[in-house]
Amino acid sequence: MKLEELRFGTELLKRGFASMQKGGVIMDVVNAEQAKIAEDAGAVAVMSLERVPSDIRKMGGVARMADPEKVAEIIEAVSIPVMGKVRIGHFVEAQVLEVLGVDMIDESEVLTPADEQYHIDKKQFKVPFVCGARNLGEALRRINEGAAMIRTKGEAGTGNVVEAVRHMRTIMGEIRMLRGLDKQEMADYAREIEAPAELIFECAERGRLPVVNFSAGGIATPSDAAMMMQLGADGVFVGSGIFKSTEPERMAKAIVEAVNNFDDATVIAKVSTGLGDAMPGLDIHTLREDEVLQTRGR
C-alpha cells in the first residue's frame, strides 16, 4: 500500500514514546551483560552510559557521552528501548547518539556540562529527549526547549532518596498550588519562575506536567521506588542502585515489582525480603558544593 505521507520525529511521536514508558523502571547499564539482566528483570528501557553515577563521583574528571562502540553493543544486546546520556548543551554528542539509533537522549547533569548558558535545542532532533528538573520552572523551560519527558533530578550516585523526594514534592506541590490561582496570578507566577505562561496554564488545567514525569537520582531500594510512585512519579530511573547492590538480578526484579505494586505494602515487603545489601549511601550534607550534580543546568 502506498501511503500519502509518513511523518517522523513529530512532537506527538516523541511524547507518545515517553508515555509508553509509564509505570516502568529504566535502568542504568554500562555493558551488554548488564543490559540483558535489566531486560530479563522487566525493565522498560535501559540507559547506556560509560560509568554509573556513583563511579563518576569516585573517578572525578570530565564525564562524557559513552563510547559509541559501547552504545552499539547495548543496542545489539536487547530488544527494549535504549537511551543514552549526553552532556548538558552538547548537541553534537546528541547528534552522534541519534545516528547510532538511540531511542531517547538524556541531557544529563550527571555528566559534566558542555554549555553553562544553553541547553540543547531539542526541537531540532527527531529523537525524543528526557531532561532533569528540580522544580516547575526548570521542568517547563526544558519542555519549552522540546523535552518529551521530565525526570526529577534527585542527587545521582548517592543511593540517598532525599533529594528525589524534595524535587518530586516541589513540582507536584507547585502544580497543586496553581489550581488556586486565576489567570493573571498564573501569568505572574510564570514570570516569577521563568516559565512560559502557556505551559503554566496547561499544567493548571491538566493538574500535571504536559509530559511524563519520572523520578531519578538516589533510588536504591524497592521501597524508595514505590515511595516515588506514591508521590506521583509516572515511573522511575534507577542508576547505581541496581548494579552497585550485592545482588543486581534480584534487586532489579524487586524494584520492577515494587513499582508495579507501588500501593501494596504486602508486595513491597515480600520483594524486599532477603535482597542482600543495597548500594552504600552518601549523606547529602557531606557533599562539597562542587560534588553536587543537581545544580548543573537551570
Partner: peptide
Amino acid sequence: RQRESFETDLP
C-alpha cells in the same frame, strides 16, 4: 527503532 516511528493517514 524510535527514529523509524511515524504517523500517517491510514485507510
